[in-house]
Every structure is written in structure tokens, then in C-alpha cells.
């Protein structure tokens, strides 16, 4: 435990006396949280929001205990979950499955043991295991971006697309994007994988710029990739020629949208804060009788220079 957390603990002691939170029962409940480790900007944001939500909830509900585990791969995540059940005796599990398939049966086993299960962002491959499902809207993420392209480009305009790591999630986004621009006459020159990585996106965009003389817009589909794309465009000196839409609301990008950068007209949210929502709902379910089961889809919204301020979290690492 870090020192500042101890201070928070002390403050909490006073808060318990002061705040009129009426707990459902005084028994301590343990909530396990299993998420992928912060290997990428979005996951970094997710980790930040998870830690922040846990700190906030521990302060509000003294009878709740949290166990946070981050995993670098699916196997480790399974081990983490098994350890939580075996040694920490958790009452609820909040999990963002690293991959759907390998996590399905371990999470099923947790649910069968009578433990509350909240699944975040990526669905399990068998429906109905989880008590609560909280997710971002991948289809919406692609659709909102696609609609913006369809509205702001005219027939015959050329765009290039950078895709993420080949996964279901990436496919859903790209399919929705393609569907949204269908019939608009926009010409998709190329789609290559930039792997949600700045360096890879930089290389791919450099090659696009060598290959195509006329590009009107770029769908980078992720803000980390957008950073690499912008840099490659700047190197080629073609900033005037095209604009870029990333995604997921990285704070540096939001800041530039707030300033009205013509290269970055809009952005589409895919909130890393969804983990916080999931943890909060789960906590609420543990301490009260509020019915929280079901599906919560957090829609993807368009960030524009007008509303950007409300999406700007300067303290988040993302």
C-alpha cells in the first residue's frame, strides 16, 4: 500500500463516522477486479480509471474490499481469477476478459460458485454467464466515425484506414465504419493494420503517403495510431491535404480538438471509464438492494470542438 493510501485510510476512518451511509449489512464484501495490464494507451487509461474508482469506492463503502489484478496475457488472467476465488474468497468479480474464448469457462466456474460476475467490454463466448455486462459500443464506434466521413466528404474523395490488431473487436468497428460510408461514393484506398501502435501506424502512414498522391482523410481508428499518422503527414508536408479521425479520446488529442485544430476535426469516444462504471455498479449491487443486473452499453459519442471540454481528463494518463 502506498503511503498516500494510508492517509486516505485515516481520512476514511473519520468519514465513516460522519457520513450517513446506511449499509445493507455490515459484513465485509470482497470484489475482485481482473483487467489486462497497461500495455497500450487505452489500457493505461482503463487501469487509471479502475484504480481511481476503487480508491473512491473504498472510501465511500468501508465494508468493501477490492482485489485488483492486471495480467499480460489470458493465461495469467485465468490464474489471477483462480487465486482470487481460492485465497481471497471474493463475493463479486469484475473482469475485462483478455480474450473471450480462454476466459469463458474459468469465469463460468466462478459464476457457478455463486459469485457475482460483471463482464466488461469484451463479451464471453457463451452468453448468459454474467450477471452484469458493461461495454463500450464497438459498432457505434465505427458507425459514428463512418457517418462523419460520409457527411463531410463528397463522392470520389479518397480515404485510407488504419486498423488495429486483428481481433473481433477490430472487425466490428471496421465493418460498422464500412457500412456507414456505403453509398456515399467515398473511395477507400487501403486498409492496413497499425496494431494500435504509434510506431507501426507511423510506418504504415509513411507508406500510404508514398503510394497515394491524393488522400483526403484518414480514419486512424485509435488515438495512439492517430499520433503516428499525424507525424508521418507532417514529415511529408501534406498537413493541408487531409484530416484525421482517431478514436477513444486520448487527452492530447482532445486538447487539440478543443483548440480547433483543422487536422483533427472530431473524435469518437470509447471510454476507458467504462471499467469505473462497471466497478461502481457492482459495488452498488453488493452494498444495497438496488437491482443492477443486465446489460449496460455505453454509447460511442462524437467529440467536437464544442463539447470536447467535458471529455478532457488532464489527470488521466490516457
Amino acid at each position: 500500500m502506498k503511503r498516500r493510501d494510508i492517509f486516505k485510510g485515516a481520512a476514511l476512518g473519520l468519514a465513516v463516522v460522519a457520513t450517513p451511509v446506511v449499509a445493507q449489512d455490515e459484513e465485509t464484501k470482497v470484489i475482485g477486479v481482473a483487467i489486462p495490464s497497461a500495455t497500450h494507451g487505452f489500457m493505461g487509461g482503463l487501469n487509471y480509471h479502475a484504480q481511481e474508482a476503487i480508491a473512491r469506492l473504498e472510501e465511500t463503502y468501508p465494508q468493501l474490499e477490492f482485489v485488483l489484478a492486471t495480467a499480460g496475457d489470458a493465461g495469467t488472467m485465468v490464474n489471477d481469477i483462480e487465486d482470487m476465488v481460492a485465497t481471497r474468497n471474493i463475493d463479486a468479480l469484475v473482469v475485462l476478459p483478455f480474450e473471450s474464448e480462454p476466459l469463458t469457462s474459468p469465469v463460468q466456474a466462478v459464476a457457478d460458485a455463486g459469485i457475482w460476475v460483471t463482464v466488461v467490454d469484451r463479451g464471453l463466448s457463451v452468453p448468459g454467464i454474467e450477471d452484469l455486462y458493461v461495454a463500450g459500443d464497438n459498432t457505434g464506434f465505427g458507425r459514428v466515425a463512418g457517418e462523419y466521413f460520409a457527411e463531410n466528404l463528397s463522392e470520389g474523395d479518397n480515404i485510407v484506414v488504419l486498423r488495429g490488431i486483428p481481433t473481433t473487436l477490430d472487425n466490428e468497428r471496421v465493418d460498422a465504419f464500412s457500412a456507414a460510408i456505403e453509398g456515399s461514393g467515398i473511395n477507400v484506398l487501403d486498409m492496413q493494420h497499425g496494431n494500435w501502435n504509434r510506431d507501426d501506424a507511423f510506418n504504415v502512414m509513411q507508406d500510404y503517403l508514398s503510394k497515394y498522391d491524393d488522400i483526403d482523410a484518414v480514419w486512424a481508428s485509435d488515438d495512439d495510431m492517430a499520433i503516428g499518422v499525424l507525424e508521418a503527414i507532417a514529415q511529408a508536408g501534406r498537413e493541408e491535404e487531409m484530416w484525421v479521425v482517431g478514436g477513444a479520446g486520448m487527452k492530447e488529442i482532445i486538447a487539440r480538438i478543443m483548440e480547433g485544430d483543422p487536422q483533427l476535426p472530431v473524435n469518437v469516444t470509447y471510454p476507458p471509464a467504462q471499467i469505473a462504471t462497471a466497478i461502481e455498479l457492482t459495488a452498488l449491487g453488493m452494498v444495497s438492494a438496488t437491482p443492477v443486473s443486465g446489460r449496460f452499453i455505453i454509447g460511442s459519442e462524437m467529440i467536437t470542438p464544442e463539447n470536447a471540454e467535458s471529455f478532457y481528463f488532464p489527470d488521466s494518463p490516457f
Partner: peptide, 12 residues
């Protein structure tokens, strides 16, 4: 100087 940044995914 290329991207002006480093993260956990740099140099993978």
C-alpha cells in the same frame, strides 16, 4: 524526436 513519446508498447 520521431514521435516524441515512449510507452509500454515502444520497442516491442
Amino acid at each position: 524526436p520521431r514521435l516524441g513519446s515512449a510507452s509500454a508498447s515502444t520497442g516491442v
